[in-house]
Design a binder for these strands. Structure first.
Lengths: 207, 207
DNA sequence: ATGAATATACCTAGTAATGGGTATTTTTTT
DNA sequence: AAAAAAATACCCATTACTAGGTATATTCAT
């Protein structure tokens, strides 16, 4: 299930997209915004997993918003929504961490397909625009997300240790352990210690 | 580390065993009792993983005590400690769930070895007594411990679900889920939801 | 059909975890 | 040297879990 947030300064366009997408049963539009700041609020509150955002917007543009979102929630996939062939802005979006871009005058089918593609963690580059984005630093690939310390704590969580025990083992405060745990839950897009532990144990079997 | 509880009606014998075993650094004597009822209390309170018990004792004999302990804590391994060649009583002990037996007049080395053996989950039958225990129903092998419902709940715990979520999924009360969880933690000899979850996930990878 | 085992449900008090923050120090990168 | 990232620590209110119980229906085997 895709939880989609949309940011676009022309409300009429948002209404149009909502109309077009609300009959797709695998996409749920969980919030819309008319500028970048609003988008950040929605992301914090509604926890989307995909964001479709305009680049040029009031208060905060899509590039800044993308940077902020990817910094705090690296797992959220962002699709740039652009009216004109603003090659430079598009490249900045990709550098900021967007997973792709699509023209506003694309068909519903194409928009839908683009959303599905980035939702899977893949990239989607609209074929009607010529950019050298493919040669760009495609670094934001959501890998090696966790820090050494976080991995260390994750492993102990995977051993069934409580926060208190981990704190004692690593000679740090329990608050610190809690903070790391919280950060990991957020970064990995999970729902609490239960899933975090599951994640920890699954990783072990994969490496 | 072996947490040993001893039950024996002759206090002088208990003192002797304590003297003999207290210098073994892998065995910790966590409690002693002079009859079967006392033994049950100690097991509840101190959570031993190995019990060395006389067969003939006041108030409750070793056979009854063994049955009760194995019913509540199947993971605890019980070693019968017998003075004479009471073949029939020994066979009853084995049927009750004991992992083996040893004569009281054995050397420290032998007693120590017997304790280490049953602690590993193996059986130990004193070679100086002739019984046909080996042909007896050696059923109490601590396998298939959990009931269907418990396994069902364990799997959901392994998926990172909370008790509340499990209760809703199975259309039962949260109290019931808690009770099942408690029972599993006790039966499997674990230390809480963390280890229970670990257990659940490890089982999955084994079958 | 009677008894044992299982599954169900509730109680209480205490501890742990969660999900919002904020803030400081240390380390790393630019 | 300044900026960014990582690690550290704390607060608060709410929810979840723990560890003791008890108790009552089912279900299953003898």
């Amino acid at each position: 299930m895709i939880r989609l947030a949309i940011a676009e300064d022309h409300q009429s366009l948002i209404d149009g997209i909502k109309l077009l997408l609300e009959y797709e049963d695998n996409i749920s539009i969980i919030g819309t915004a008319n500028d970048g700041k609003e988008l950040l609020e929605i992301v914090d509150k509604k926890q989307p997993n995909v964001v479709l955002t305009d680049i040029r917007m009031p208060k905060m543009d899509g590039i800044q918003a993308t940077k902020q979102i990817k910094k705090k929630y690296p797992k959220i996939n962002i699709l740039a929504f652009t009216m004109f062939e603003q090659v430079e802005a598009i490249e900045q979006m990709i550098d900021a961490g967007a997973s792709g871009y699509i023209l506003k005058n694309s068909s519903l089918k194409e928009v839908h397909k683009a959303i599905l593609t980035v939702a899977k963690g893949e990239t989607y580059f609209d074929a009607n625009i010529n950019t050298n984005v493919l040669n760009s630093k495609s670094k934001n690939k959501t890998k090696g997300i966790l820090t050494k310390r976080q991995i260390e704590i994750l492993e102990l969580i995977g051993q069934g240790k409580t926060s208190r025990e981990i704190a004692d083992l690593l000679f740090i405060g329990i608050h610190t352990v809690d903070t790391h745990r919280k950060n990991m839950v957020r970064i990995l897009g999970l729902k609490g210690k239960g899933e975090l532990m599951r994640y920890a144990l699954e990783k072990k079997y994969k490496f």
